[in-house]
Design a binder for these strands. Sequence first.
DNA 1: ACAAAAGTGTTGGGAATACACCCATGA
DNA 2: TCATGGGTGTATTCCCAACACTTTTGT
Lengths: 230, 230
Amino acid sequence: MAKYSAQHRVLIAVDCIIFGFDGAELKLLVVQRALEPQIGNWSLMGGFIEEGEDPNDAASRVLYKLTGLKDVYMEQLSVFGRPNRDPVERTISVAYSALINIKEYETQLSDAYRAEWIPLKDVPALIFDHDEMVAAAKVHLRYKAALHPVLFELLPEKFTIPQIMALYEQVYNVELDKRNFMRKLRSTGLLVKQADKDKEGSRKGAFYYKLDQETYKDKFSSFLHFIPQP
Amino acid sequence: MAKYSAQHRVLIAVDCIIFGFDGAELKLLVVQRALEPQIGNWSLMGGFIEEGEDPNDAASRVLYKLTGLKDVYMEQLSVFGRPNRDPVERTISVAYSALINIKEYETQLSDAYRAEWIPLKDVPALIFDHDEMVAAAKVHLRYKAALHPVLFELLPEKFTIPQIMALYEQVYNVELDKRNFMRKLRSTGLLVKQADKDKEGSRKGAFYYKLDQETYKDKFSSFLHFIPQP
DNA sequence: ACAAAAGTGTTGGGAATACACCCATGA
DNA sequence: TCATGGGTGTATTCCCAACACTTTTGT
């Protein structure tokens, strides 16, 4: 069949906003850009969509190339298409937000792409409109995590309650009450207490928990309310 | 500067999921496709992005062309980019969701684009992946409206409480309790009661209300909870 | 023994639900 | 006068936020 011949075509990129948590701090995975322009400057990990490739697959591919990880929690964020956002050539970018637990993933990433985990509060200025993308991803994460237990995606298989709490506190930039938070958390039925403790954070040690995968799947779409309303 | 020469370029479209409410029923605005393939079949209103055009502007342009309306509430939904979604040529589409109150907008639209308001429950099968887009838009609308008073965008300047309630009931496909709903609504401070009544729906007539624009702007981003949790 | 973080319970207030009757009007 | 939809009030439950002390253990 004939093409839509009168129309003009543009480049499509994907960019990944990759959040990570190491048990203490919320971080962002950024790379040093490998091509001109702005070679060597901090950037989100991204890439162009290939022929016949679904944008979602492109994002997975890009993430895999960087981290070696598959089946990562990833969501489409939104499209960034301001005409001159890339000075070289018109490029429309689809931003994706991914959640990774840093600890379980111990490969070397810095070598190939000069990638680095940088604490979210210390992230330097990024190229093009990547700062906007990060800002949008933060908003989205707050929005999502206020309703769905999505932050567990950032935690390793075994985690402690003080860790989750620190995570929530950093995402929302608030201080939470231990007692209320724990009660809320327990009432969800998402947690399975383990016998052993994590002794890294304190003398006493904090009990490990695992996610109850069944409950997790069931409850994922039902609305939860972790963050107090002022 | 040199182009990204090795990459391949694709068509970008926008498609608009346009919700409307006439005071009684929630509807979708669909058109009969004007080009091959599938000419004459039901479709969302869409169009290609032009050179140097921001996708958001393209969506506004498309909406304006169809309805003559500007400054309509519109949000980017997500990207649909399955490789063969358009059989003619690879086209990636950015879906937008718009909210319109049908009554205030009394132009003729059917002529130019053979457009029609169809009750949401009766919408026929649409071309390509437009059904998926509509499904995503419904989910998004529920999500959004559960937290933000966005459904007021569907109402005319003067509306009645039974109308809003009918709207919420249709969006969530539930039955609400008049008394609780009214109390909740009033407690938001969003409503300004008018002196006159709408006599169309009943003998007694229902008082008109207007939105308190100040409060609306203030409260738009704060979370509200209109829908009871079972 | 003491420092440092983990863990535990209670209580009061406010919000959400459930629920049933009167009102105004046109036909 | 009656049928129709509009509008109002209360009792109860449940959830949430506020709040302080004990436990464990390594040094």
